[in-house]
């Protein structure tokens, strides 16, 4: 179960993208996402794929991985496109020269097609950028990066360390809980229960029978882990050695400057 390819799962490597400071990558993905929504029409959005392409190239990962990552999204993309295509983008009746065809109650317009295309591209770029981040950055580094980025908020009692610790624990226990679910399913199947077959009510009952022990074991695990962490001297972030100090390199700084300049350009352009 956990052996399958998991969307966006970290793939260790030594590419330039892997080596970037996680903070740089986080900031860039964040800026890129915001930027995408500032771009108005399909052409600039399409061109926004260029930096993404460069990033994929720099990650030295097979393109296949990103396409695989988009696979669970494709139904959403198709539906989004169809909605825009058939529904048009405005409530006003479309200009006659814009109409491509009429199918019963639906009017297909050039504007609709363009908006649909733009939205689909935006979603695809956004998702690819995010998975590129997790593909090239270990969960631990993402957490460290987040903790450092949110660090200044500690002054206002924002629990940056706790949040980071929570995230890394959650990530660690996903496979364990999967395994546990697997075990419970098998143990129940051995006694003739299954949520895969039978009537809906039977399946629902079987599902409850699965969720209850799973939830209980997760709660028990949480309790045990808390005790075990305390036994190893954990008392929260205070007094702990700062671990893995992140180091920005010249490339990181350059990329951040470029990101900032690109952001300013987009904002100025939209303003004018």
């Amino acid at each position: 179960m956990s052996g399958n390819f998991i969307v966006g799962q970290y793939i260790p490597g030594t590419s330039p993208l892997h080596k970037l400071d996680p903070r740089t990558k986080l900031i860039m993905v964040f800026a890129y996402t915001i930027g995408l929504f500032f771009l108005p029409t399909w052409l600039p959005v399409l061109l926004a794929g260029i930096p993404l392409g460069i990033a994929v190239y720099a990650s030295r990962l097979p393109w296949r991985y990103l396409l695989l990552g988009l696979r669970p999204l494709w139904i959403l993309l198709v539906i989004t496109f169809l909605l825009h295509l058939l529904g048009g983008s405005s409530t006003a009746p479309p200009a006659p020269e814009d109409v491509w065809a009429t199918l019963g109650p639906w009017t297909i317009t050039g504007t609709g097609a363009a908006t649909g295309f733009t939205t689909v591209l935006r979603l695809a770029w956004l998702f690819s950028a995010a998975s590129l981040l997790t593909l090239t950055t270990s969960p631990m580094m993402v957490t460290h990066g987040l903790e450092r980025l949110l660090g200044p908020l500690k002054r206002w009692r924002f629990p940056a360390h706790e949040l980071a610790m929570m995230t890394s624990i959650a990530l660690r226990f996903i496979p364990t809980l999967q395994e546990e679910m697997d075990k419970i399913i098998k143990a129940q199947a051995a006694r003739g229960s299954s949520w895969r077959y039978g009537s809906w009510t039977r399946r629902a009952q079987a599902l409850v029978a699965l969720m209850v022990p799973l939830l209980l074991s997760a709660l028990r695990r949480a309790d045990d882990l808390a005790v075990a962490m305390e036994a190893r001297g954990y008392q929260g972030g205070e007094g702990r050695t700062a671990h893995h100090p992140l180091q920005m390199t010249r490339i990181d700084r350059w990329l951040l400057i470029i990101t900032a300049l690109a952001g300013i350009t987009i904002i100025l352009w939209r303003w004018a």
């Binding site: 270990s138 969960p139 631990m140 890394s168 624990i169 990530l171 660690r172 226990f173 364990t176 695990r221 045990d224 882990l225 005790v227 075990a228 962490m229 190893r232 001297g233 954990y234 008392q235 007094g239 702990r240 050695t241 700062a242 671990h243 100090p245």
Partner: peptide
């Protein structure tokens, strides 16, 4: 049950958990 005790992403990180809590130098 070692699954109760081990929670970090990697072996090395898990072993460092206790010493980090002690506030030792890196």
């Amino acid at each position: 049950d070692p699954d109760v005790q081990l929670f970090s992403a990697s072996v090395e990180q898990d072993i460092s958990f206790g010493p980090l809590n002690m506030g030792l130098t890196e």
